[in-house]
Simulated scan of single mutants.
Amino acid sequence: MSVAEDRHAEIVRALKASESVTVAELARALQTSEVTVRRDLAELEQTGVLRRVRGGAVSTMLRGEEMPFAMREMEQSAAKARIAAAAVGLIAEGESVVLDSGTTGLAAAHELCARRVTVVPLAVNSMVVLASAPSVTLLLPGGTVRKGESSLVGPMAEQNISMLRLDTMLMTCCGLSPRGGITAHDLQDAAVKRAAAAASARTIAMIDSSKFARTALAVVCATAEIDVVVTDVDAPEDAVATLRADGIEVHCV
């Protein structure tokens, strides 16, 4: 992550904590000039996460909506890379894999490039990554591209996936509760995830620790329907213990 991306991530975290920030406060916290902060705020305004006001900015991130993809890609980036590598490490050569969308899904696409597998990607950005991988057989499901996310949604995606039988789904999500299940912000996205899990013999959920504190709008499935959870070492110990007690294999990396 670049220095500018680090600053952007810190600004987003500050907005999530207080919903408004001032240029002077950010300059002190980031140890940079107010000119640089104003430039950062202008760039972040273009992504839709904030609105600039006199002397600072206010958050435009609604609690029921997810952050833009570019902002989520900055969040927990190192942990997501470790999670993706560990999850792909559980895939055997020759397997057929349906790869979920999202930032961790994109990280997993890069890891899959070195494997001899058949991959059904549920996002256009992952397709681009995998298209040039010499040992990957790429199977495209079709569907409507969700704006800003590049994920595939809609009845075409659901129907095409339901006609396949796959070895493993690498699932991502917006929230996980050991008792409340796996959740997503978008209803159509949740439906595609359900179809992909139903078509797969095994589901591996790739979930960074921040997702344990969140519950999104649409239920994807109960945690009992997940076979393996790959998360990071900061995952809540009680949640990890509950998952393991329910017979779910959990890897903390």
Rank of each mutant, 00 (worst) to 15 (best):
A107C: 04
G64W: 04
E93M: 06
V88G: 01
I83N: 01
S59Y: 01
K80N: 11
Q76N: 15
A70W: 13
V88W: 01
Q76S: 10
A86Q: 12
S59G: 12
R51N: 09
M71S: 05
G55T: 10
R39C: 03
R39W: 15
G102R: 03
V88H: 09
L106Y: 04
L62Q: 15
A107V: 02
A70P: 13
V97Q: 08
E34H: 07
T104L: 03
T32D: 10
V97H: 00
M61H: 10
V49F: 05
A86P: 03
S33F: 06
L62C: 02
E75N: 13
L44K: 09
I83G: 10
A42G: 09
G89E: 14
A87S: 14
A86R: 15
A81K: 11
A85H: 05
G64I: 13
V49I: 08
V98L: 10
S96D: 06
I91Q: 02
M74F: 06
E66H: 11
R72W: 03
E95V: 03
E73G: 00
R82G: 15
A79I: 09
L99Q: 11
G102V: 00
R63Y: 01
V35C: 06
E43P: 12
M61T: 00
E93Y: 09
R54F: 00
V35Y: 10
A92V: 01
G94F: 03
V49R: 11
G102I: 01
A107R: 12
M61D: 07
R52G: 14
I91R: 03
M67T: 05
G48Y: 01
G102Q: 05
E43Y: 12
R39E: 03
P68M: 06
R63M: 02
Q76V: 07
I83A: 09
L90A: 12
L62Y: 08
L62N: 14
S96N: 04
R52T: 06
V35S: 14
R72N: 01
L44G: 11
T104V: 09
T60W: 09
L99A: 08
A92I: 00
E65C: 07
V88Y: 00
A86H: 11
T47G: 05
R51D: 04
L99E: 10
A85F: 04
R51A: 15
D100H: 07
L62R: 15
T104R: 09
G94K: 05
S59T: 14
M67S: 11
T60Y: 04
V88Q: 01
G55Q: 01
G55V: 08
M71R: 06
T60G: 00
E34P: 02
E45Q: 15
A42Q: 07
A87E: 07
A85S: 14
A92S: 06
L99W: 01
G55P: 02
E73K: 08
I83W: 12
A81N: 08
I91S: 06
S96G: 05
V58W: 05
A86S: 12
A81R: 13
E65G: 12
G64K: 03
D100Y: 09
M67H: 00
G64C: 00
L106I: 01
R72C: 02
F69T: 02
E45I: 06
R52M: 08
L44C: 11
